[in-house]
Amino acid sequence: MKQLAKPSIGGFISKYTGYVTFVVMVIVLGILTRGGSLRLLSWQNLAIAESVRAFGALGVGMIIITRGIDLSLGQVIGLSACVSASLAQTPDYVSALYPGLDLPAIVPVIAGIGVGVLFGLFNGFLVAYGKLPPFIATLGSMTIAAGLQLIYTHASTVGSLQNEYKKIAQGFLGPVPNMVIYVAIAVLFLWVLLNHTKQGKRIYAIGGNPTAARVSGIAVKFETMKVYLMAGTLYGFAGVLLSSRLGLANALTGDMMELDAIAAATVGGVSHSGGVGKIGGIIIGVLTLGLINFGMTYLGVDSYYQLLVKGAIIISAVYLDMRRAA
């Protein structure tokens, strides 16, 4: 019964396509920029820029593993950013949403996460118990979040945030940006969750075959709800980090981020047929798309053309994935 599969270079590459592609891209870019892109500062910038997207991609990645999708994440991140920013404005700022308000930084953080939690519960309820197709349910909640964002900010920018609040995302621990530490914590947590707990195994089971999951005693609705809730929590935190990093938030904050996050999860090998996807893959997907943006900007490629390249990469990643699965 035990008969080890022969390790081969081809097998290794096909198993770790994402990682291999990423390493190749780093090397090529390093050569093209004569080492410029390999400097610490470049990596710090890349990491900071991609951190918020990483939270989104981790959340939606788990949802895609359960055969779902989440279109609301960009707007939820945006709404969370606006709400948290509004509670972190300097008290003497005349155009503040709540002039004179002076709260410890923990309050806007909790409020921002709270926004994500509420939307996660809402989406999860609609999908798991309301049986709405995830695409439609989250299309609705995306629209609601976008509306709330406009109403809450009166369509103007929430700026002049307190330094203490801005430090949350802008600070460094040695050479490592705080943002990277938050992502690392989330990655570690989710990696343990998906690989070493029954909840994690159940997420794969639900995505792999929901009927068989039910027969195996898994409370499919409840577990699905939990996945949306977890994703919402991640979005909430991402919104806080975004407003803290930018030092402001407005109705456009987070716009279209859902598409980047879904693209990153997809490039990272999360299958839309469900049941397949790894945390490491999602992060590689985020970094790959980030590196493309960053590299092309560094090389002076017109940003309009960058979109074409990005689109082509998404399509080819999925194409290769489908071929491999078939």
Partner: peptide, 20 residues
């Protein structure tokens, strides 16, 4: 339709209801 998790491996397929 209601038995196997097609993409999961033998270990995962065997252990699913025993995870608790």
């Amino acid at each position: 339709g209601a038995g196997i998790f097609p993409l999961l491996n033998i270990t995962e397929n065997t252990s699913m209801p025993s995870l608790d």
